[in-house]
């Protein structure tokens, strides 16, 4: 299977297979034939920011722009091409930005940048080049590289976090930085809020000359709560019981004889249904051998 895999240079849907040799470590059985595979394809998009890009799938762990640059430059050097990488876009290795809570709760803070609305699937990114020529150079170099002998493939250099880097996660946040950050953020927020308020008030004068004075998200908490409460995942599985309406409450349930008769009938039917259910349950339990006192 490995031998078969060796010969794959590009996938059917046009992705180039770009192998990198895994570095030798003393902890894992080392072997020249083991590789990491990246899949690369030219990115087609109408978005201005995403011109001259390569779509890259399966980028190794903790890879930043610099790491990728140096690896690709090695390939370029092998095939004597020149190509300039500008940026690595939408690379979200740990899936931290998959959900933008801020945008989902309010549109006040939207910056309008594509970073905010656009992202690529996990384990993929866009590699942006300075110009179209660079992309083409790069692609042709990669094509040659992917078809070349595996023994010539370039060794990947992993970036390893140091212990102190890991421990830094526990470090306190500098208070000054926090204060500054908050002050900055809050001023932007207040400004936007003000702006939004004004926009709403100025624009919504209806035909009769009335002005709408509240924004859509500034209603009283209770009314908002009512609107979103049905989204509560915890009550998703609860059986809903409608509270009796005012009319129902007042009406007498045992005024007419037929009401009493119906009620009795209902009760008996309920009893019967319950009994049938119980019988079914017993049958199920019996099938599961639930009545053996000696197990």
């Amino acid at each position: 299977m490995v031998a078969k895999g060796e010969s794959v240079h590009s996938m059917k849907n046009g992705f180039l297979v770009v192998p990198f040799r895994l570095p030798v470590t003393r902890f894992l059985p080392g072997d020249e034939s083991k590789h990491h595979y990246m899949f690369v394809k030219k990115h087609q998009s109408k978005v201005q920011e995403e011109q001259s890009c390569l779509f890259v799938v399966n980028i190794p762990l903790l890879t930043g722009l610099e790491t990728l640059k140096s690896a690709f430059n090695k390939i370029f050097a092998q095939y004597d091409t020149v190509s300039h990488i500008e940026d690595l876009l939408y690379h979200d290795e740990f899936g931290l930005r998959e959900v933008d809570l801020s945008r989902l709760t309010s549109d006040l803070l939207s910056t309008g940048t594509p970073e905010e609305t656009r992202f690529t699937p996990r384990n993929t990114a866009l590699l942006k080049f300075v110009d179209e020529a660079s992309v083409n150079n790069c692609l042709s170099a990669l094509r040659k590289y992917s078809q070349s002998d595996k023994s010539k493939s370039i060794e990947w250099e992993y970036t390893s976090p140091s212990v102190s880097a890991l421990l830094d996660f526990y470090k306190p946040l500098p208070k000054d930085y926090l204060k500054e950050d908050i002050a900055e953020h809050m001023s932007i927020f207040e400004q936007r809020e003000q702006q939004a308020q004004e926009d709403v008030q100025s624009s919504l004068v209806d035909e009769d000359g009335f002005t709408l004075v509240v924004g859509k998200n500034t209603k009283s908490l209770n009314s908002i709560r009512k609107k979103v409460l049905n989204k509560n995942p915890l009550s998703k599985h609860e059986s809903k019981v409608l509270p009796p309406s005012a009319v129902d409450k007042k009406a007498k349930q045992d005024f007419y004889r037929f009401q009493i008769r119906e009620r009795k009938k209902r009760e008996i039917n309920q009893l019967l249904v319950k009994f049938k259910e119980d019988q079914e349950r017993i049958k199920v339990m019996k099938a599961k051998k639930k009545f053996n006192p000696y197990t």
């Binding site: 078969k4 794959v8 590009s10 996938m11 595979y37 996990r122 384990n123």
Partner: peptide, 13 residues
């Protein structure tokens, strides 16, 4: 493209 795991090719597909 969106399969999200570190993979290696077996054949073209």
């Amino acid at each position: 493209v969106n399969m999200d795991y570190n993979s290696k090719p077996i054949d073209e597909q």
